[in-house]
């Protein structure tokens, strides 16, 4: 019985996004987007053209996606970890660590148009060049969010811990870290899009002549392969949605106690 409810639950959950997707695709495909919004089919190819380009080039797209996913995940994980550890440091040593957050924001604010070429100078290999771009742009969101999460304790629990004479370490592991998790997941979710974009733009500049970013640049800067370019954008979207979905599942397992997970749908 339970399994059946899971399946039907899935159906209920998937129906709205699918319906919306069908609506958007139909809106463009039937030409409404072109007549109502003045979009040009050459610039935004109709979904059918993108789909057939996607199928036609599926092998190449899969290969290029692999090139892009690696540095995205690696950079996102390392960057988020650095961001989190920074937040821990600042929470633990509020006086001494205060300035660190600003340094992090500063590094985080280096425009990506400058960051990607700089990292390309530092690392001649494409992989570390891309990973380092993603690390730098994804640590800020995590640091800001985790810092808030670590210091945002329900007062009752803090008083309770204090009353129990808990050590700082215990407050950290039992209280602060769990309290930070909802914020951590929000930061991770933001970082999915940030990291993918970081890799894509990194690929505009690196040595590789492969990867989603390189192919987007290659195909969108000439006139007769736009549908292929949009097929690559579609691939990037699918990948990011998959990573996002995985994070949502992980959040559901790890943060069961939290209000956001208890309400149900």
């Amino acid at each position: 019985m339970k399994r059946r409810s899971v399946v039907s639950g899935m159906m209920v959950k998937l129906a709205p996004p699918v319906a919306f997707g069908v609506f958007v695709v139909g809106f463009i495909q039937l030409g409404l987007a072109y007549t109502l919004l003045n979009f040009k089919p050459m610039q935004l190819p109709p979904p059918s053209a993108v789909a057939s380009a996607f199928i036609e080039n599926f092998q190449a797209i899969a290969r290029d996606s692999l090139v892009t996913v690696g540095p995205t995940l690696a950079g996102m994980i390392v960057g988020s970890l650095i961001g989190y550890l920074t937040a821990v440091f600042i929470t633990r040593f509020p006086k001494g660590g205060f300035g660190l957050l600003y340094i992090m924001i500063a590094i985080n604010s280096v425009p990506i148009v400058a960051l990607a070429p700089i990292m390309n100078r530092w690392f001649t290999q494409p992989f570390p060049a891309k990973v380092s771009v993603v690390i730098i742009i994804s640590m800020g969101a995590m640091a800001v969010n985790a810092f808030r999460g670590l210091s945002d304790l329900p007062d009752e629990s803090r008083h309770l811990m204090r009353a129990c004479d808990a050590s700082n370490m215990e407050v950290f592991t039992k209280l602060r870290i769990p309290a930070s998790l909802p914020y951590v997941f929000t930061a991770l979710k933001i970082n999915v899009s940030v990291a993918m974009m970081g890799t894509i733009i990194g690929e505009y500049f690196n040595d590789n002549t492969s990867g989603i970013g390189y192919m987007i640049k290659y195909t969108l800067r000439i006139g007769n392969r736009k549908a292929e370019g949009w097929a690559y954008i579609l691939a990037a979207a699918i990948i990011s949605i998959l990573i996002y979905a995985a994070l949502t599942l992980a959040q559901r397992r790890l943060v069961r106690w939290h209000a956001s997970q208890r309400m149900g749908a």
Binding site: P17, G21, L37, S193, M196, I216, A236, I241
Partner: peptide, 23 residues
């Protein structure tokens, strides 16, 4: 309905987006 598409929308690089916005 919208969340997956909002996320997907963030994957459109300026190179693809700019002509549409300019239009």
């Amino acid at each position: 309905m919208a969340l997956p598409y909002l996320l997907a929308s963030q994957m459109i690089p300026i190179l693809g987006l700019a002509p549409i916005i300019f239009g």
